[in-house]
Amino acid sequence: MSTRQDIFANLVDENQGIIHKVCRTYADSDEEHKDMFQEVVLQLWSSFDSFKEESKFSTWMYRVALNTAITLFRKKKKAITTTEIEEYHSHQYKEIVEHDKQEEIDILYKSIKQLTEIERALVLLYLEEKPYKEIAETIGITEGNARVKINRVKVKLKEIMQQWI
């Protein structure tokens, strides 16, 4: 019989891509990425009892992961240099994605990094193709407001990305 820990580990294992994407959106180095990933796992575990199984695990995971990442992001005092950020993005997935796609991903992440913490969360959920209702619930705003904010942030992101192309 599976223990609760096994169930949790399996769920995290299956959905860990979500945590990695959230961490990559907010972390500026490999080390920070790992620390953030671990903190998210700990937060997920400590609130696992409150997870209602009628909702999707991934939806709940997004909420906890984003809350944790944003909290850590706010706590972060020391700004790191652009060079370090660029190095982090260029080598992270070097061997597993083809060159042009990797470049696009790198540019996308670099551009997302220019956004505020809430804008980053909105873009991430938008790119994940989450319905507006779910985005609104995750961020804690109304659905209408989520639509408006996403449209604005799309324009902003486009402008930023043009700098890199």
Partner: peptide, 29 residues
């Protein structure tokens, strides 16, 4: 560049992954 087109790129990104054992170990940190 159209942001909507980036959804595919976003989806196809391969992320590094931790093993199940590494995830369990994180709970003890």
């Amino acid at each position: 560049m159209d942001i909507n087109q980036l959804k595919n790129v976003w989806k196809e990104q391969k992320t590094t992954s931790f093993s199940r054992e590494q995830i369990l170990a994180m709970l003890k940190r």
